[in-house]
């Protein structure tokens, strides 16, 4: 197998979408920590296939990728930013919490807000000291409840997904989560959001 540095070189020199795709797939396959920066760059090549592969590679590297993802966030390319958030959401490291809270409310790109809302629902809370967990979870609930009233259906949909995840992680919030989901299942103006909100209500008692 080729050295990671050779593959990174191949990613940088790729002269066609197909060559880029092959090189990034190889980079994902070697799974080396040295690949993190190159994978993060690949999120911003405006090629959805390549970006999805790179997200997969970053998620596989897990905690190693968190700091670099946070530090190399692309403030100008919202497509790249959305992919970074998707990777961070799936990894679930609470270091991303402040960023998720802010982006879920304020980012101008709906795709970034949706990824942040999902991320708020799948944080690995056990990594935080026990005393910090409940206050942070309350803050997450407030933010998600705010998104649940957003004018855009996609944001409300992602709020439901986040709220559902939070409910299964935070026992003390379960009654509030249940009430909010029930209200959305009955009253959301969009039928797909209503259907999504009703889902956890029918599968858990």
């Amino acid at each position: 197998m080729a050295e990671t540095s050779d593959i990174i070189q191949a990613v940088e020199n790729a002269d066609s979408p197909a060559a880029l795709r092959t090189a990034v797939a190889e980079l994902v396959a070697v799974g080396s920590p040295e690949a993190v920066s190159a994978l993060i760059k690949a999120l911003g090549y405006n090629n959805p296939e390549v970006a999805s592969l790179a997200v997969e590679g970053l998620v596989r590297l897990g905690d190693l990728a968190v700091r670099p993802l946070l530090e190399q966030l692309d403030d100008y390319n919202y497509g790249a930013r959305a992919y970074s958030f998707r990777a961070l959401a799936t990894i679930g490291d609470p270091q991303a919490l402040p960023l998720f809270l802010k982006a879920a409310r304020e980012d101008f790109a709906p795709s970034v807000r949706r990824a942040a809302a999902r991320g708020l629902g799948c944080l690995r809370w056990e990594v935080l000291p026990a005393t910090q967990q409940a206050p942070a979870q309350d803050q997450v609930f407030q933010t998600l409840a705010h998104l649940a009233a957003d004018p855009e259906w996609g944001i409300r949909y992602s709020a439901v997904v986040g709220i559902e995840g939070l409910g299964s992680a935070a026992a003390h919030l379960q009654p509030a989560v249940h009430d909010l989901l029930r209200t959305m299942a009955q009253q959301d103006p969009d039928q797909v959001v209503r259907a999504r909100a009703a889902l956890p209500l029918t599968t858990t008692p």
């Binding site: 959805p48 497509g79 709906p110 795709s111 259906w153 039928q191 797909v192 259907a195």
Partner: peptide, 20 residues
């Protein structure tokens, strides 16, 4: 499909609406 997530998300929503 090799398309941005936002389009896939919208397409799946409309698929479900037609189904519903």
């Amino acid at each position: 499909a090799a398309v941005e997530n936002s389009f896939k998300f919208m397409a799946l929503k409309s698929l479900l609406e037609t189904h519903l």
